[in-house]
Amino acid sequence: MAAGGDHGSPDSYRSPLASRYASPEMCFVFSDRYKFRTWRQLWLWLAEAEQTLGLPITDEQIQEMKSNLENIDFKMAAEEEKRLRHDVMAHVHTFGHCCPKAAGIIHLGATSCYVGDNTDLIILRNALDLLLPKLARVISRLADFAKERASLPTLGFTHFQPAQLTTVGKRCCLWIQDLCMDLQNLKRVRDDLRFRGVKGTTGTQASFLQLFEGDDHKVEQLDKMVTEKAGFKRAFIITGQTYTRKVDIEVLSVLASLGASVHKICTDIRLLANLKEMEEPFEKQQIGSSAMPYKRNPMRSERCCSLARHLMTLVMDPLQTASVQWFERTLDDSANRRICLAEAFLTADTILNTLQNISEGLVVYPKVIERRIRQELPFMATENIIMAMVKAGGSRQDCHEKIRVLSQQAASVVKQEGGDNDLIERIQVDAYFSPIHSQLDHLLDPSSFTGRASQQVQRFLEEEVYPLLKPYESVMKVKAELCL
């Protein structure tokens, strides 16, 4: 049975990233139509530049190519590739079939990587351009969430054990800070992308030097003109047959890092959902379990974690691919890159769409948070109580021993009897502590235990987050809708 299948058929496997999760716009960027249309555009740009620099290419040939950029006979191309065992030459023939007058000058002087690699770089750039505003929107939604809850005390956790208090907004800023680093890295790697350009079979530009009869300047002009037509500021000066596969490492490393950030955020949300302090959106008709109707599973956060793990592992592909590119190139890269580049971007696209949807509907339960604080705060307040007693004339050592005994009794009630923490009640009825009984409410005010959390939130948002989001103001209103 021949390899390949009808990918629109229910009898043929289709990647869930495309069929179930990723956005239509990201799927289109990695589609065959987008790819092969870009090949034709690159052939047109090459012909236009070659004509401008004096090669015998007519206006009629150029116009014929322009008129057929979208006229792609995919069936013919597939048949040609089956016959020739070469995808680029299959599309040269297919393009030439609908451009008979231009057929002889299509791909003039070029090698397969002229269309293959340059198209990949265009796709990487455009895919990054799709991700950047999506990530900015996630940051914006979380920034709104953090600002609104900047002063809401909550129990902090280290080692997932109760620690000092923080605020809900401050905790959210930990998430935002990681995503801001990801946004900066995505922008950097996007701006650092260079075009492969017009380089020939081993990167020496020998074929173009021959076409222009040894004119170095025209060869350099050709490279520059096509690079500018493709919208790049610069091209690699040095290439082998391909652009260095280190570029793929750079791009997928940034995406993998984004995956790590999203995994951490969504894990926190899942843990908070278990504590009943916070939940992701839950639709009115949504079913959490087929057997347990009360369940409210954090399905979206779980999906993000599941896909983020996949995204983090994909960076190993370009690392290994770059390491086995012998001399000017081997074909070890080809099949692998067809999979890992598309999957990385479709996965990143999915987790950003999902995280935006989550961040637009996060639900906080202040009463649950308050109750958990009441359970733990008495123990945390013991040092403040000791200091207040010393100020009232008591002995630190005597007070410490009193607190120690009462704390152990209260802990026994919590752990052995399943009761509430009654340390404060014990202190309130103990005559030894009568000098500070009137101060206990103040000493137990949760806001006095959150330090500068709310001020940190305000400063972080104003100095770091809002300036970073400013270039994306025009796209901030787009909502994230999930079908599944």
Rank of each mutant, 00 (worst) to 15 (best):
A2G: 08
D6L: 07
S23P: 05
P24E: 11
V29I: 12
S31Y: 01
R40F: 00
W43H: 15
L46H: 05
A47S: 09
E50M: 07
T52M: 10
L55D: 04
E60V: 12
Q63V: 10
K66L: 10
L69T: 11
L69R: 07
N71D: 14
A78D: 14
L84V: 05
D87S: 03
D87A: 02
A90H: 04
H93G: 14
T94C: 12
F95P: 00
C98Q: 15
I105K: 14
L108I: 12
G109D: 01
A110G: 15
T111A: 00
V115L: 14
L121P: 00
L124M: 11
L130W: 02
P133I: 14
I139F: 03
L152C: 11
F157S: 08
F160S: 07
Q161V: 02
V168K: 02
V168Q: 05
L179Q: 05
R190Q: 10
R194S: 09
R196G: 10
G197R: 02
T201N: 04
G203Q: 01
Q205H: 07
L211H: 06
K218G: 10
E220L: 10
M225V: 09
K229E: 05
A230P: 00
F232W: 05
F232D: 00
G240K: 02
Q241R: 02
Q241E: 03
K246W: 04
V247F: 06
D248C: 03
L271F: 06
E277K: 01
F282Q: 08
Q285T: 14
Q286F: 00
G288Q: 02
S289I: 02
S290M: 02
M292N: 02
M292A: 01
K295W: 03
R296T: 12
R303Y: 02
S306D: 03
L311I: 12
A322E: 12
S323P: 03
F327N: 07
F327M: 13
T330P: 01
D332I: 00
D332S: 00
D332N: 00
D333F: 00
R337W: 02
L341P: 06
E343Q: 12
L346Y: 11
T347D: 10
I351A: 12
Q356K: 03
E360V: 00
K367S: 11
V368G: 04
I369S: 13
R371T: 05
I373H: 05
L377V: 06
A381E: 09
V390F: 03
K391V: 08
G394M: 07
Q397T: 08
E401K: 14
A410V: 05
K415A: 10
S434A: 12
P435E: 09
H437P: 01
L440N: 05
L444C: 02
V465A: 10
Y466R: 14
P467E: 10
K477E: 14
K479Q: 15
